[in-house]
Simulated assay, not measured.
Amino acid sequence: MAELCVRSVLVTGANRGLGLGFVQHFLRMSKPPQWIFAGCRDPKGQRAQELQNLASKHPNIIIVPLEVANPASIKATAAKVGEHLGGSGLNLLINNAGMAKPKSLDNETLETMTQVYTTNTVGPLLMGQAFLPLLKKAAQGSPGSGLSCSKAAIVNMSSYAGSIQDMYVWDYGQVVSYRCSKAALNMLSKCQSLTYKEHGILCVALHPGWVQTEMGAAGSLKPPLTVDESVQGMLKVLSSISEKETGTFLDWEGKVIPW
């Protein structure tokens, strides 16, 4: 199968977990991206140490301070990325940054719902708006017709927990605000796919699997997937999807997940 081939990619929440995994896998490609923009809230902080180490060895990694719950931060990042890219556009936007608060329905609060929804749903909405000009530019500058992730794409990291039809691991944890935010993110992905299709931009919601990250391993059970396995699977999916998959909800193996 053909490897994903992009000149530029931006990954949010890139300092740990799946975000860092994406950065590492892009570096290992036979033809790595010329630009890997790694967004994280505190680039100089202790939690970004591993990302800093990578960037010191690989000049194609540009660490950008980015808080996806802050519109001003998003606009500043879009301007900075645009400066680096010069006349070319951004091929791939991976909205990976996310958060969860392990609360049951009875314990949910306005504060928690708002905080989780702002990061997990509103953040990807604002990121899509801010980076639309750069994604459009990439789509226009890519050869061939149709949609692909090598051309221009928005990838929203969703979760099976956002499926309304199949209440994934409900007995393991209700995490109501997280579930609601991911169900809303799935709808956003669908809306983006319909709106941005005319600009040549593919949009998809991806479930990475239950992964051994700080968030995934917060409970008492050990998740079955490593970060490496999940990211490798997702990149394989992204390399193969096209126009007919835009607006769909897929898992790390390319299987369709019920809404």
Score class of each variant (00 low, 15 high):
I74Y: 02
M157I: 14
K236F: 14
H207E: 04
E50S: 15
S177T: 11
V68K: 01
H199C: 14
V6D: 04
M1E: 15
N15V: 03
T119P: 08
L20C: 03
S240T: 13
N70F: 03
N96C: 05
P143G: 08
L18N: 03
D106P: 05
P133S: 06
L206T: 07
E229L: 10
C203H: 04
T121E: 13
P224S: 07
V23I: 10
Y160S: 14
N96Q: 08
K197Q: 14
G13D: 06
L126W: 07
K75L: 12
K255C: 10
L250C: 11
G247W: 03
L194R: 15
K151T: 15
V23W: 01
L85I: 04
W210K: 03
A205G: 09
I201Y: 01
L185A: 04
S148H: 15
P124H: 04
Q129G: 06
M1T: 12
C40A: 01
S158N: 13
A69Q: 12
I201F: 03
A76M: 10
L132T: 07
K236D: 11
L20V: 03
S104I: 14
V122W: 08
S142G: 10
Q46E: 11
A69L: 06
P143L: 13
E111G: 00
Y196F: 14
V204C: 04
G144S: 09
Q192F: 11
F249Y: 09
V227R: 02
Q49K: 15
N95S: 10
L92T: 00
D251P: 14
S56N: 15
L27I: 09
P71S: 05
M99P: 05
I154R: 06
L188H: 00
L66Q: 00
D106W: 12
